[in-house]
Design a protein around this nucleic acid. Sequence first.
RNA 1: GCCGGGAUGGCGAAACUGGUAGACGCAAGGGACUUAAAAUCCCUCGGGGCGAAAGCCCCAUGUCGGUUCGAUUCCGACUCCCGGCACCA
Length: 751
Amino acid sequence: MGWDSFGLPAENAAIKKGIHPRIWTEDNITQMKEQLKQLGYSYDWSREIAAHRPDFYRWNQWFFLKMFERGLAYRAHRWVNWCSTCQTVLANEQVEGGVCWRCSSVVSRKSLEQWFLRITTYAEELDAFLPKLTGWSERVRQMQKNWIGRSEGVLVKFRIPDLPEMDPLEIFTTRLDTIYGATFCVLAPEHSAVALLCAGTPQEEPVREFVSRMMRRDVVHQDAQLGEEKEGVFTGRHAENPYTGKRVPIWVGNFVVMEYGTGAIMAVPGNDERDREFAQLYHLPILPVVRPADSSQAPPDRAYTEPGVLLNSGPFDGMASAQAFEALVKLGEEKGCARRMVQFRIRDWGVSRQRYWGTPIPMIHCPACGVVPVPEQDLPVLLPEDVVLSGEGGSPLAASPAFLQVSCPRCGKGARRETDTMDTFFDSSWYFYRYTDPGNDQAPFDSTAAAQWFPIDQYIGGITHAILHLIYCRFFTKVMRDLGLVALDEPVVRLLNQGMVLKDGSAMSKSRGNVVEPDAMIRRYGADTCRLFSLFAAPPERDMDWNEQGVEGCHRFLERVWRLAAPQFSTQAAPIPEGALSPRETALRRKTHQTILRVTEDLDRRMHFNTAIAAIMELVNELSAFHLAGTDDGAHRACFREGLETVVRLLNPFAPHFAEEVWERLGSPELLVHVPWPHANLALAEEPRVELVVQVNGRLRGKVIVEKGTAEPEVLERARNDPKVEAHLRGKSLLKTVFVPDRLLNLVVRE
RNA sequence: GCCGGGAUGGCGAAACUGGUAGACGCAAGGGACUUAAAAUCCCUCGGGGCGAAAGCCCCAUGUCGGUUCGAUUCCGACUCCCGGCACCA
């Protein structure tokens, strides 16, 4: 068990209630541990870890230092998502539809110097390995693919003839085939060339006004879906299209994002819908350069954006888009104005948080030496205890002089500690490796221990972690591999996304008031009933509604087993006599051993706990009927006992307390948990006879019971003797038969 | 817009490799036990038709088509629901 115990909830609760986050967190862990133990989960508590304890987070700091050494951790000024309510920076993935994922307030923009992890170094590999993750759902892999957003294109240089001393403008495009239709260029408002371009032109003032207005806008308003109209302003300068030599105006526009590509685009309004919209708005020229390859007409009121055949493109007219693309790349490379490039949507991971309850970033700012890492032997950098949390202002750690003031490890002079703490996704990116060696104080874990356990055979997590956590932990594994700590490319072989527990059709939440408290449920029905129901109601990957009547049903089932077992308490199990069992007894034994097979299979390979429980219920139903019907002699009792004990043993993973109790009362000296899983006798489970389906023209017309392995001629003979089948054959000619041994016989007939 | 997943009784679901659709449970109805109720036990339980009954027939896995002796399962088109990405050039 690992506690993901750093982060905002602890800090917010602490601010609200005036309790120190550490006390609050430890209290919660104590309570939750109690609940988990009540539910009887078989966690290995000797391997318990918690993110907020220094023996764990010192290794966060260690990883950070290793990444810093390798250039994977760096500091940069960047426009960041700022939540004014939480007073903190949010990662892109923590902004949902323009609002803070946690408090739902509108996210604004702010420029801050931040720590970043260079996840983009691994973007190519993170993308390339997705098809190999065959134990992951298509859904999650697709989500990650979208998130990484790999896109192959070309970087093209546009010179600015009026400013010969200026670097050419670089744009990224995936549609080089449309370059003859580039009638203007557009820069993002944040683009560094904007100021240089407009300087000294009549457009300087309008551009300045536009850019500063754009910089102030909320993240929400950047989202076209949420209503921002396209808007832009001419910079007063022109760029030269390197292919046509034509001069095209350079604009600044709100619809170009700085964070993708180069933050500058060539606009092809004839073949791009967004560019067309902008061109119409400002009466810029529109020149279609690709038309549909077949004779169909390009839509008159929209841009034709599909690949097709080139026109208005000089020597490239008549070429197919793909062919033209290659020719244009070749030409551009020769001229030195274009080169192939792969772009990713994923950005480097901003890990800085201006918060208290997280891992201090182990860096020191020295006026003389600059940014200096804390020496490894000085780890951990402990979180100061003396910080008063007000919930306002900037970094809480800056308020602790004892923490802040430090001497530089390099020059020894007075310096200042980094006050940012780490995103809690840092903790969760590698915690599972720590399970293999939780007490290690020399390293995050021993590589031999990790090699023994890894990769993870089966990981279970909610779909909410499909992108964030599950990309970060893949990234960490690749970094750790390159550090020589592990010999793995991917940490998780099989991934199961379990569904949520719903109440009345929606997720449980305090604000809805539909929360089911585990304590109350355990008091009312017992832990085993709760476990049984939560596994029986639906397969694990599906959402499940917490239906109290369903819970009652599971409770009744356990009581039924108890009543079935009670007469057997304190009696001896008699051995089953050799041979000479009645048909009924033989049938019960068959069911018993078939059930072992089914439950084992459902549990082990399929993880379909609901059908495993259903199979046990079937056996219990059979046992009840057997109990009522039979003559109470030794063989009867022995077969019943075998079935009953099997039920108890198969029930053990689902209802462990109940199963142990019944097991003990049945007179077994050994704890059930130490008794090996029941072993099915395949010979006993075998059906000697099978019910074989007889179809006429694919429709069920009869059934015959035959010895297993009976050949077609005999089955056909038997089928013809069935009056129902015969009725459907009468007066018709048999064209052919389809025979599947032990399953069906299909008779194909015609009038 | 692009991509992914899904749709089966009144409800949660099952059918694992193309071979008896609806296992198991919930709810509902009927009966037994009881002075009564609870609990428990037994029976019925997708829709329609024929029959006195035993039983038989037809329809049915979102819609329409296809492949096949046979389709909940495979293929194509569509409808609706859920999810991801999205002014990403």
